[in-house]
Nucleic acid binder design. Structure first.
Length: 256
DNA sequence: ATGGTGGCCCGGCCA
């Protein structure tokens, strides 16, 4: 199974790039974030023509998450049980090829003194609760998406630059570890050295200057981690005309 | 360096 995650920063603008990328890389399951589409505007037919079933959770303006799969889409769950915990459309789950897949877009947090920072920490705690409530220990589980947290200092271009900022603060990293504590592994790290990033600000030539962060993660249960055969970030998808500010992350698994 | 860019929808918000 080839599993991918990509924050596309508005699917309407990115659809040609996304479909071309899927045809080139042939993922079996794709988690998308920041589609910024209402459900009735989601281009299910385009993905259907490529052989993928899709489930989408979006309200049209901000956020928006989806799962595309050519291994089936079973038992989809849109959002948390309580919408007020979710702060927009930020999580969708479905079973694809025997794996419980989650596509997540964690709140940005804005700044350490902003109310959205607390919302971000609460959201990550709520994610852990969802895993506790809906996933069986020992099952095949993947939580993929834009976590808006760089797991450690090797995941940012310059730790000194980020002192006092979100994405790197200890409470955020601790909240991420609590999610991983369900029994998930940051599988990208098995195959890549520190310094491989997934997001670069559009501004000031950050991409070309290498000023990025690794905030797009694929967290998988132990059985999947044991079957992982490779993982990469596709830098080419961040180049050229009208890119997302995120690059996709791909992980390959051998069959069970 | 409080800029810079690029999305939402068309002025302020969000990343």
């Amino acid at each position: 199974m080839r599993l991918a995650t990509w924050n596309v920063n508005w699917l309407a603008a990115r659809l040609p790039r996304v479909t071309a990328w899927m045809e080139e890389h042939q993922p079996d399951v794709v988690c998308l974030q920041e589609t910024k589409l209402a459900d009735d505007k989601f281009p299910s037919d385009v993905f259907s023509d490529l052989g993928y079933e899709a489930v989408h959770h979006g309200d049209g303006r901000w956020n928006g998450v989806a799962i595309l799969s050519r291994l089936g889409v079973h038992d989809p769950v849109l959002g948390f049980r309580s919408a007020e915990d979710e702060h927009g459309c930020r999580i969708i789950a479905a079973t694809c090829g025997g794996v419980r897949v989650h596509s997540v877009y964690v709140p940005n947090g804005r700044s350490l003194d902003n109310e959205f920072y607390g919302i971000k920490l609460d959201w990550l705690a709520r994610l852990r609760t969802m895993l506790d409530e809906t996933c069986q220990a020992g099952g095949s589980v993947a939580v993929c998406g834009d976590f808006n947290v760089a797991p450690d200092d090797g995941d940012v271009w310059d730790p000194g630059h980020f002192v006092g900022m979100t994405h790197v603060s200890e409470p955020e990293r601790a909240a991420l570890r609590q999610v991983e504590g369900w029994g998930l592994n940051d599988v990208f790290r098995q195959f890549n050295e520190p310094g491989v990033f997934t997001w670069w600000d559009y501004r000031a030539g950050d991409f070309h200057e290498g000023r990025g962060m690794r905030i797009d993660l694929v967290l998988v249960s132990d059985d999947l981690a044991g079957r992982a055969s490779g993982a990469f970030m596709d830098r080419n998808a961040r180049k050229g005309q009208k890119p997302s500010d995120h690059a996709p992350v791909v992980v390959d698994f051998t069959d069970a």
